Amino acid sequence: MKPNTDGPRWLNIFHFASPYQFYPLAGRLIPLFATLATLLAMAGLWLGFAIAPADAQQGEGYRIIFLHVPTSWMAMLIYVAMAFWSVMHLILRTRLSAMMAQALAPTGALMAFLSLLTGALWGKPMWGTWWVWDARLTSMLLLFFLYLGFIALTRSIDEPDRADKAGSVLAIVGVFNVPVIYFSVKWWNTLHQGASISMEKGSTMASTMLIAMLLMSLAAWMYSITTTLSRVRNLILQREARTRWVQELLAIPANKA
């Protein structure tokens, strides 16, 4: 029995699960998210570095949090998204799901690296050292290695199906490190300061600082979506290179493909 195709196409949740359908959609969305990322970053940097007051205890050095916190949040969020798409791939066997996970990984690795780098830049003047084997720092370093391991694993296997399955398993297993990062300051005696924003206590930050941090976080989010959509389009072209629609798109004669 054929599925009912009557009614708006957007009601079919599996419509864009096809690389053929998702490729043009991603192309239309990239300029939108890129523009949002640029505008939000400009507003967040201006508010955080030019308008927000100095911190009473940390002085001007605290401003690194406007880069550190958003990249830390995105490093964790992206890995959760990778695990989600990996589950979808193993359950539904959709090709696009595995490609989404692989497209997310480089941006997630970048966010984890920037989180560690900005944390070190903050830690040197505040703690007197670039690095300590603190629970949160160590678990974030592990997340960075998980990203690198995922990228290396999926690229080292020539057969796409095997690479997708192996990467999916690693992403799902590694996601258990994310709550360790988040709750580490509560579970262990750690040098890392607790969250300035929480559901129970609200925010302990000045409103200007909070708005700047949220703007930078949204900018990091929009940037991550932009790079992921761009990267997944390239993966689609690589994976679907022998299909007629890609050959027609790239104007490659079928007898030369």
Rank of each mutant, 00 (worst) to 15 (best):
P70Q: 10
I64Y: 02
F66R: 02
A83P: 05
G48L: 01
P31Y: 13
V69A: 11
I78D: 00
V80C: 14
L67V: 14
Q58T: 04
I78G: 00
V80W: 01
M74A: 07
A75S: 15
L40I: 05
P31N: 09
A83D: 01
W85I: 00
A81Q: 07
R63L: 03
S72I: 03
P31Q: 07
M88G: 06
W46V: 09
G48Q: 04
F84N: 01
F33R: 03
I64W: 10
M82R: 02
I51P: 01
A52G: 05
A54I: 11
P70C: 09
A50L: 14
A54W: 02
I78T: 09
I65W: 05
M76T: 02
E60M: 12
F49L: 15
A56R: 15
P31L: 12
I91P: 05
P31F: 09
D55P: 01
Q58V: 07
Y79Q: 08
A37C: 08
I64D: 00
W73M: 05
Y62I: 11
M82K: 01
L39P: 04
T71S: 14
W73F: 12
A41R: 08
M82T: 06
E60T: 14
A83S: 14
M42P: 01
A81L: 13
R28D: 15
S72Y: 00
L45Y: 06
L39Q: 03
A50H: 11
I51E: 10
I78W: 00
A34T: 14
S72A: 15
M82H: 05
P70I: 06
L90H: 09
L40F: 14
T71Q: 03
S86E: 03
G48E: 04
A54Y: 08
T38G: 12
Q57H: 10
A56L: 12
M76Q: 05
G61I: 10
D55K: 08
F49N: 08
Q58N: 11
L67N: 07
T38R: 11
W46Q: 08
I30Q: 06
I64Q: 05
A50R: 14
F66G: 01
M76N: 07
R28E: 15
M88A: 15
W46S: 11
I64M: 12
M74L: 15
F33K: 03
Y62L: 06
A43H: 09
A81S: 11
A43M: 13
E60G: 11
F84T: 12
L40A: 12
L90C: 12
I64S: 05
I64E: 03
L32V: 15
L45N: 05
L77D: 01
L67E: 01
Y62F: 13
I64T: 10
A52N: 02
L36S: 11
L77V: 08
R28T: 15
G59W: 04
V80K: 02
G48T: 03
D55Q: 07
A52K: 02
I91Y: 07
I30C: 07
I30L: 08
I78P: 00
I51A: 10
V80D: 04
L45M: 12
L45E: 02
G44L: 04
L90P: 10
M42C: 14
I65H: 05
V69M: 04
L32S: 06
R28N: 15
Q58H: 11
F66E: 01
L77M: 10
G48K: 01
F33Y: 12
L77R: 05
S72M: 07
A41C: 11
V87H: 02
Y79R: 02
P53C: 13
A56Q: 13
F33N: 05
